[in-house]
Structure formats: C-alpha cells, structure tokens
Computed example of a mutant assay.
Amino acid sequence: MEIIAYLIDFILHVDKHLEAFVVAYGPWVYALLFAIIFVETGVVVMPFLPGDSLLFVVGAMCGVGLMSYPLTVGLLFVAAVLGNQSNYTIGRYFGPKVFQWEDSRFFNKRAFNQAHDFYEKYGGITIVAARFMPFLRTFAPFVAGVAQMTRSKFTFYDVTGGALWVGGIITAGYFFGSVPWVKANLDKIIWAMILLPGVLVLFGAWKGRRKAAAGAL
C-alpha cells in the first residue's frame, strides 16, 4: 500500500519530485526519465506510469533552465520509440498466449480487448493516436504485434507518433509550464491529462456500441 500511495503522490506531484531529484542527483535525472518512458511504453503490464504529465513537467523544467531541452527531447524520443518496439516484439512473439489469460493483478484482459477493438477499427493510425491516450499507448503496440503488423509499417507509425508525443508535449511544457496560472493549477492540469483522454475513449466506445446496436435492429 505504501508503494501505491507513493506512486499516486509521484504522479500528482511529479514536478516537485523531479525538481528534488535534479537538485540531489543532477544529470542522473535523464537516466530516470529514459527508464520511466521506456517502461511505460514498452512493458505491457506497466500502463499506470506517468506519461503526458511527466513530459509536460519536464518541458517546464527545461523552460526554466533546470534541464537541457534538445537533450531531453532527443533522449525521451528514443526511449518512446524503443519502448514501443519492445512492446511490439513482445506482442508479436508472445501475444497469442495472452488470450488464454484471465484477469489478474498484472494484466487486465478487458482493457486489452478494448485496445484490440480500437486497433482493429482504426488500423495503423492507432499507434500515433494512442500515444496521447494513457493505458491505450501501452497496449496499442502490443496489439500491433499480436496482429502481425509488419515491422516496417509499425516503425513508421512508431517514429511519427513518438516525435509528435514527446516533442509536442515537452514543447508545450517548455513554453507554458512557467505561466503563473499553469503553475498554480498544475495538479488540476495533471488530472485532466490523465482523465480526459480516457473519457474520450469511453465516449467513442459508447457511440460505437450504440451505432452497432442500432444497425442490428
């Protein structure tokens, strides 16, 4: 329970934790961030790690000179691309066995099925769109592997989505993270970055089911 409480506190106050880490350990923060982004995108059982909010806060830290903007963008872009490649590889070679798993503490089969349906409907562009959706961005490359999407096609969407996600959100944090209103409401912004994409996905799924039900009548 203490680990869960700390993780929640880290996600909601990631700005304070990262700033303290930079003060204490300096350049080691780049290794920490690389590991978080790689694991969050590359290990299918780790979808709860911070992603969007972390990138935004990192951008804000770059904006005030605590970190290097070009180094951070380049390094985390590589982490995001390699993470997806790892997840894709896991799905390609081990994914079919997952369909035999039951819900467990480490794998939510319902969430996996939702990601699978989303991928089946929207195809390769899912890899790009899912970058901006917590949980789905962890499952989408895994599902692409399960679906035997070709490596070259997957890599194209992986690189494109990674560049837009990492570059876009870090840049937004760089320019807007130090705005007084943003700093005063950062906790609310983090909640919005976590919850809003999920609400949009659920709304889209609900509309899809209504349309399918109406078509069956």
Rank of each mutant, 00 (worst) to 15 (best):
V73L: 15
V22N: 01
V182D: 01
F132A: 06
Q100V: 11
K153L: 14
F156E: 09
L54F: 03
T150F: 10
I169Q: 01
A184I: 07
L71E: 14
P96H: 08
V199S: 11
Q85I: 09
K207W: 12
I125A: 05
V159E: 07
G59A: 05
F112D: 03
F112H: 07
F34A: 13
A216H: 13
T126R: 02
I8G: 02
Q100K: 10
K211G: 15
A129F: 09
L195T: 04
A144S: 05
Q148L: 08
I189A: 07
A5N: 15
F118Q: 04
F38Q: 10
L12W: 06
Q85G: 10
P47L: 12
K183A: 13
F175A: 12
S152C: 14
I37A: 05
G161W: 04
Y157C: 07
A115Q: 00
I127H: 05
A140I: 00
V81S: 09
K183C: 03
R105W: 14
H17I: 01
N185W: 04
F106N: 13
R92P: 03
G59N: 05
T126W: 02
I190P: 00
D158M: 12
Y119T: 00
L75G: 10
W28T: 11
V179W: 13
M133P: 01
A216V: 13
F56A: 02
A184W: 05
V201D: 02
P197Y: 01
E19C: 02
R105K: 15
F135T: 01
F112A: 12
G123D: 00
L82S: 01
W165T: 03
E2Q: 14
K97T: 12
T138Q: 08
Y93C: 07
A184F: 08
A79R: 10
A130G: 09
G51L: 03
L33G: 05
A163Q: 14
D117F: 11
F77L: 15
V45N: 03
Q114W: 13
G167W: 08
H116A: 08
